[in-house]
Simulated scan of single mutants.
Amino acid sequence: MKTKKRIIAISASLIFSFLTLPAFAVSPDQPDNNPPKSLEEYCKTAPCRKNHSFRLKQKDGTFFNYSSELDPPVVQPAFLLIFPGEEVFIEASEGKDAPQDLRHVPQNIHPERTLVFKFSQPDDA
């Protein structure tokens, strides 16, 4: 039971951290002196996600609901943006100290170089 509560707390923390972040991040190949003016502009050249929603059960039994017509890509320069209920596949090459060249892929075709992330909340949470 403690583990479930800890997972819920971590998931909620990640969500609220995301909600306080800027709407998009500048990619490494984009000069810092010319960032996009809006998420819509950024998504013209980035693999953004569309029509995404999720809900999380809160301590008092009510639900936190999130819905968005447009969200930034999963892979960001300094972090991965993963929503509750989502399973994502990230292909990477082996770096000296950490995985590098992260790329969001639709399927786990190359398990030897694919990281799998899935956030979920048990029904009885």
Rank of each mutant, 00 (worst) to 15 (best):
S17E: 11
S17W: 04
F18D: 09
L19C: 02
L19W: 09
T20H: 10
T20Y: 15
L21G: 08
L21I: 01
A23V: 04
A25G: 02
A25E: 11
P28R: 01
P28G: 00
D29F: 03
D29P: 00
D29H: 05
P31M: 00
D32M: 00
P36Q: 03
P36A: 01
K37T: 09
L39N: 12
E40M: 10
Y42L: 05
Y42H: 09
Y42W: 13
K44S: 06
C48L: 06
R49G: 08
K50Y: 12
K50G: 04
K50C: 04
N51F: 08
H52K: 10
H52Y: 09
S53D: 07
F54E: 10
F54S: 02
K57W: 07
K57T: 13
K57R: 12
K57N: 11
Q58C: 02
K59D: 14
K59V: 03
K59P: 01
G61S: 09
G61I: 01
F63C: 15
F63Q: 15
F63A: 13
F64A: 11
N65T: 07
Y66V: 00
S68C: 10
S68A: 15
E69N: 14
E69V: 05
E69A: 12
P72M: 13
P73N: 06
Q76T: 08
A78Y: 08
F79G: 02
L81M: 14
L81P: 03
L81V: 13
I82Q: 07
I82K: 08
F83K: 09
P84N: 03
P84S: 01
G85V: 08
E86G: 13
E86K: 10
E87G: 09
E87T: 15
E87A: 08
F89P: 11
I90G: 06
E91R: 12
A92R: 04
S93D: 08
S93W: 02
S93C: 01
E94I: 06
G95V: 01
G95D: 12
K96E: 15
K96N: 12
K96W: 11
D97K: 04
A98I: 02
A98Y: 05
Q100V: 06
D101M: 01
L102C: 01
L102H: 08
R103A: 08
V105K: 11
V105W: 15
Q107V: 14
I109F: 03
H110G: 00
P111S: 04
P111C: 02
P111H: 07
L115Y: 11
L115G: 05
